[in-house]
C-alpha cells in the first residue's frame, strides 16, 4: 500500500498547525500571566500584547522556547522529576554522550561539530559529580529542581549558557518558570510548557498525551 498525496500533505499541515498552536498557547499563557500581574480582571489581549511589546513576543516565539519545553516534557515523560535512579542514569548518560562526542571530534582532529558548535562549548556542558549528586538528592527529597548552571549544562548541545540564562529570565517573567535565589538560581517549571508541548505531541499522535502522562506504559 502506498501513501497517498493527501496523507503526506495532511501530515505536513498537522505538523505545522501543531507547532503554530504550541506558540499561540505560549503567547496566550504569557498574556494571561501578564494581565494577572497587572491586576486585570478581564484580559484584553490586544492591550496586553501592546504592553508586552513586539520584541518580547518574538522572543517567546523563538525556537529555544520549544527546545526547552520539549526537554521539560521529556523529563516528565520519563518520570525523571521524582525517580532519582533514572535521573542519575540520564545525567551520567548526558556526560557519556558529550564525552563520546568530544572524543569523536578529537579523533577527527576537528574543533567543531558538524553544526559548528565548538568543542569548548561541549566541554562546558559536562556535569560535575557534585552537580549530579545535588540534582539526584533534590529529586529524592522534594522533586527535581534545576539550578541554572546545571540546566545550562544539560542544554549545552543546543544553546549557550548565556542564551539559556536569557531564556529562563524571559520565561520566568511570564509565569512559565519560577527562578529564585540570589547567587545560585533555582529553576522550577510550573508545568505550562510541558502541557503545551504535550498538547502538540498529542495532536500529531491523535491522542491526549497529557492526561495519560503518568500511565504511559514503560
Amino acid at each position: 500500500m502506498t501513501t497517498s498525496l493527501t496523507e503526506v500533505y495532511d501530515y505536513v499541515t498537522s505538523v505545522g498547525s501543531a507547532r503554530s498552536e504550541f506558540y499561540a498557547g505560549i503567547v496566550d499563557a504569557a498574556c494571561q500571566d501578564y494581565g494577572k500581574k497587572q491586576g486585570m480582571h478581564e484580559i484584553d489581549k490586544n492591550k496586553v500584547l501592546d504592553a508586552i511589546g513586539a520584541a518580547t513576543i518574538k522572543q517567546l516565539n523563538h525556537s529555544n522556547v520549544e527546545t526547552l519545553a520539549q526537554f521539560l516534557f521529556l523529563m516528565k515523560l520519563f518520570r525523571l522529576n521524582n525517580d532519582s535512579a533514572r535521573l542519575r542514569r540520564y545525567l551520567e548518560g548526558h556526560n557519556e554522550r558529550l564525552k563520546a562526542k568530544l572524543a569523536r571530534l578529537e579523533t577527527q582532529n576537528t574543533r567543531y561539530t558538524a553544526s559548528g558548535k565548538p568543542a569548548s562549548s561541549l566541554r562546558k556542558g559536562l556535569l560535575h559529580p557534585e552537580q549530579i549528586n545535588k540534582m539526584v538528592d533534590e529529586a529524592d527529597d522534594m522533586g527535581l529542581r534545576y539550578d541554572q548552571t546545571s540546566l545550562g549544562c544539560l542544554l549545552a548541545e543546543v544553546m549557550s549558557p548565556a542564551t539559556t540564562r536569557n531564556l529562563l529570565i524571559l520565561l520566568s517573567e511570564f509565569g512559565f518558570l519560577r527562578r529564585i535565589g540570589n547567587n545560585t538560581k533555582v529553576i522550577r517549571s510550573l508545568g505550562v510548557l510541558e502541557r503545551l508541548y504535550g498538547d502538540r505531541v498529542g495532536k500529531l499522535m491523535g491522542e491526549d498525551v497529557n492526561s495519560g502522562l503518568g500511565e504511559i506504559s514503560q
Partner: peptide, 20 residues
Amino acid sequence: MRLILAAIFAGLASAAVAEP
C-alpha cells in the same frame, strides 16, 4: 512511549546558540 518519542523526533528541527 516509542510513539511519543517518534512524534517528537519527527518534529521540526530548530534551536539556537550563543550570545554576544
